[in-house]
Amino acid sequence: MKKKRLWFRSALLAILVIAVGYTIYNSIFEETGTYISKGDRAPNFVLTDLDGNRVELEDYRGKGVFLNFWGTWCKPCEREMPYMQRQYEAYKEQGVEILAVNVSETNVSVKNFAKRYHLTFPIPMDKQREVTKAYGIGPIPTTILVDKDGKVVERTSESLSEEKIISFMEKIKP
């Protein structure tokens, strides 16, 4: 009798803890239902970059991808660009690529910006914001680290220091 009661109580408490725990998990990690975060598989996408080349995320399987969402008008984005360019050159040979997805801007603006900062990494142009929407990007810059297996290992919306970028590069180096 007493044992049965203990079992009943434990089961009921366990069910509630699990239900609330799962709810909190969802509230944090699935905010909009499209929010891509740590541990998720990075959804594949196809975009045309500034030079007119087709860029598909899946083609980078086997390499680490530093996926950055940005705009020319966003100051914090502008700040981290020179660091990204330097570390792109340093880590390119080590199998880490940078894809700097521009959020819905014109080729003219982005070309001028890229020229000013001597950017050489691919800049996929997300004209229709389709990728931005699919990844649930809110504020920019947002950086998503994708490892060689196509899994997201980090997501952040802070403006990155050069040290931080180096530590990110090390993290996804194959």
Partner: peptide, 10 residues
Amino acid sequence: GSWWFIILLG
């Protein structure tokens, strides 16, 4: 959506 509010409701 904050964790502590969900815990309170739970």
